[in-house]
C-alpha cells in the first residue's frame, strides 16, 4: 500500500512540521482459532496539524478498525503509529487511556452522552479523568459548550435536547481537553438533514479555527466537506482525493 505524501518521505525534521498522525505499515489481524482475518494490511497515513481528513469506505473495508487504531482504542498487530510526537503502537492499557484522554477528542455516531447527567456534566467528564479541579472543570465545560453555541443549554439533560444539540454537546466534550486530534466516527449517521448540516457546519468552523479533524464516514456528501478524502478498501488505502493543496 503506497499512500505516502511526498513531503513525508523526507521524514521528521524536514521542512514540514511533524505530522499529528503518522501511521507506518499498520497491520491488524484478528485470529479466532486457526482463522486469521487481516482487517488492515499495511496502512501508511499522515495527517498534519490543522488538516481535515475524511476516511471513507464501505462496511467491511477496515475503516472502523483504522479508526480504532487511530483513536488508540485498539493496538495494531504490526506497524508504527506516532501520535502527536509519541509512539503509541505498543503502549500499556493505562498509558493508552491517558493518550485518549489528553490527545484525542471523540465524537460518536450514537452521541454516547450519559442520559442522567446534564450537558455540562457530560462535557466535563474527560476532565475528571484528567484530574482537573472541580471549579476549573466546570468553567472549561461551560466554555466548551459556549464554543458550540449551547451555553444556555448547559443544565439540560440529553433527553431534553434535539439530536443535533446532543451531537453538539458531544463535540463540546471532544473539545474540552483541547486535544491534538478530533476523531469523529459517523458523527451525522443518526441525524436528520438539518442537524447534519448543523453539525458539519460546526466541524467546518473548528477546522477553520485550526483544529485537526479526522472524520470516518460512508457518505460521500459528508466526506466532501473535508480537505482530503482517504478511500479505504479491503484493509488498505485505495486512493486519496485532494480537495485542496495540503498545507
Amino acid at each position: 500500500m503506497t499512500a505516502t505524501t511526498p513531503d513525508l518521505a523526507a521524514g521528521p525534521g524536514a521542512s514540514e512540521a511533524l505530522p499529528v498522525l503518522q501511521l507506518r505499515g499498520i497491520w491488524k489481524t484478528y485470529s479466532t482459532g486457526t482463522v486469521h482475518v487481516h482487517a488492515l494490511r499495511g496502512v501508511d497515513l499522515d495527517v498534519h496539524a490543522g488538516e481535515y481528513v475524511a476516511i471513507m469506505g464501505p462496511s467491511g473495508s477496515g475503516k472502523s478498525t483504522l479508526m480504532n487504531v487511530i483513536g488508540c482504542l485498539d493496538v495494531p498487530t504490526a506497524g508504527q503509529y506516532v501520535l502527536d510526537g509519541e509512539d503509541v503502537a505498543h503502549l500499556s492499557d493505562n498509558a493508552l487511556a491517558d493518550i485518549r484522554n489528553q490527545r484525542i477528542g471523540f465524537v460518536f455516531q450514537q452521541f454516547n452522552l450519559l442520559p442522567t447527567q446534564s450537558a455540562w456534566r457530560n462535557v466535563e467528564l474527560p476532565l475528571w479523568y484528567a484530574r482537573v479541579k472541580a471549579s476549573e472543570r466546570k468553567q472549561r465545560a461551560l466554555d466548551a459548550l459556549a464554543r458550540v453555541g449551547l451555553a444556555e443549554r448547559a443544565h439540560h439533560k440529553p433527553g431534553e435536547l434535539s439530536g443535533g444539540q446532543q451531537q453538539r454537546v458531544a463535540i463540546a466534550r471532544a473539545l474540552v481537553t483541547d486535544p491534538a486530534l478530533i476523531l469523529a466516527d459517523e458523527p451525522t449517521g443518526n441525524l436528520d438533514s438539518i442537524s447534519t448540516a448543523d453539525v458539519l457546519g460546526l466541524l467546518d468552523e473548528l477546522h477553520a479555527a485550526g483544529r485537526t479533524i479526522v472524520l470516518i464516514t460512508h457518505e460521500a456528501e459528508v466526506a466532501a466537506r473535508a480537505q482530503r478524502v482517504v478511500h479505504v478498501f479491503d484493509g488498505g488505502i485505495a486512493g486519496i482525493d485532494e480537495k485542496a493543496a495540503t498545507p
Binding site: 483513536g71 482504542l73 492499557d93 493505562n94 487511556a97 491517558d98 485518549r100 484522554n101 489528553q102 471523540f106 460518536f108 454516547n112 450519559l114 467528564l125 474527560p126 479523568y129 484528567a130 466534550r173
Partner: peptide, 8 residues
Amino acid sequence: LRKALGAR
C-alpha cells in the same frame, strides 16, 4: 465511553 474518554 468512560474508557474511551480516558478512564483507567
